[in-house]
């Protein structure tokens, strides 16, 4: 199920990449803009990539869109899931560097509210955590734990959410109008009801940047350490992660700005939610679980069986 959600997200990315906006010079300029603030060697590589894209815009953008479309189809199709997941890792890392400027991590511009540290790096992380289990039927506390083992999975979780907490508290993000400005910047080209939501949220957060950043950072730290707590508390941390992701997607990312017509992906929040689901405790083999219930699906499937279907 989680692999299919990842596949759906890649499919969506591929389709968004075919939009008219991506065939304008603005796309190349958008890539080039991510070079600012990065160390010289990284900035130069991003600028080089932006120049190449601008010169071969139609060809390269079509290739980019098709690759993402194929990644989505490949992950959804059982025969090709491993190949597609592996390819998605390589593709994500390349895009994170050359297309997103490492998500602003090194430039100090990353904000968890606006998609930092880059949505595309989360695709790579998810591909690792959702890698098909080698031993069907083996038990594990969660999908993520099964893929990489509990210690590594917990460490990944801690680093990710801990880094989000850190980014929430950087000077650029705790400025009085920082959150307000981020949210207002999302309103361009959006339908009226989205603009209304954003403007309302921006008004609430006006001049409250420091307070909001501290509240957000505390929530993110609670999520980060929650994975190391006993199961009931860990589950609460996961619920908090889902709630925070939902708030970020609606108010900070304006649904990935998909409705504005110039988005390359749904942004980071849906992927953060998918990540939280990958850590969701699997149903244990208790007395109830042993009784087969034909009408109800399992609470969470670890991975899809490896049968080959035509």
């Amino acid at each position: 199920m989680l692999q299919l959600l990842l596949a759906a997200t890649w499919l969506m990315d591929g389709m968004l990449q075919y939009q008219s906006f991506m065939y304008t010079k603005a796309f190349g300029q958008m890539i080039g803009g991510t070079a600012a603030g990065n160390p010289g060697i990284i900035a130069r590589s991003i600028s080089w990539n932006a120049a190449v894209v601008e010169h071969h815009l139609v060809l390269l953008n079509t290739v980019f869109a098709t690759i993402q479309l194929l990644l989505g189809l490949g992950i959804a199709y059982r025969r090709t899931v491993r190949l597609a997941l592996a390819a998605s890792i390589a593709w994500s890392l390349a895009v994170w560097w050359f297309g997103e400027g490492l998500g602003g991590v090194l430039s100090g511009r990353a904000s968890p509210v606006s998609g930092g540290p880059g949505a595309v790096i989360l695709y790579a992380l998810l591909a690792v955590l959702l890698w098909p289990a080698g031993r069907p039927g083996a038990t594990a506390p969660s999908v993520a734990f099964r893929a990489v083992g509990a210690p590594v999975a917990r460490l990944v979780w801690l680093v990710l959410w801990g880094s989000l907490a850190y980014f929430a508290l950087t000077p650029a993000n705790r400025a009085p109008q920082a959150l307000h400005d981020i949210i207002v910047s999302m309103t361009g080209g959006e339908p009226g009801w989205v603009t209304g939501l954003e403007k309302h949220a921006a008004a609430v957060l006006a001049h409250q940047g420091l307070t909001a950043s501290i509240v957000l950072a505390v929530a993110l730290i609670a999520i980060a350490v929650g994975m190391f707590l006993p199961p009931p508390l860990a589950r609460n941390a996961l619920i908090l992660a889902l709630v925070v992701a939902a708030f970020i997607w609606v108010f900070g990312e304006a649904f990935g700005q998909i409705l504005a017509g110039g988005a390359t992906d749904p942004n980071s929040a849906p992927l953060l939610a998918l990540l939280a689901l990958a850590y969701w405790p699997l149903a244990t083999a208790g007395p109830r679980a042993r009784r087969p219930q034909a009408d109800s699906p399992p609470a969470m499937t670890v991975g899809r069986p490896e049968e080959t279907f035509g």
Partner: peptide
């Protein structure tokens, strides 16, 4: 219209969901 573009996105999401579901299902 802007309102209809929201509906377009909802339809697109549903179609993508059914498509990955179709791909995952055994043919036939």
């Amino acid at each position: 219209t802007p309102h209809a573009s929201t509906l377009a996105l909802i339809f697109a999401l549903l179609l993508i969901a059914f498509t990955v579901h179709d791909l995952d299902r055994p043919a036939g």
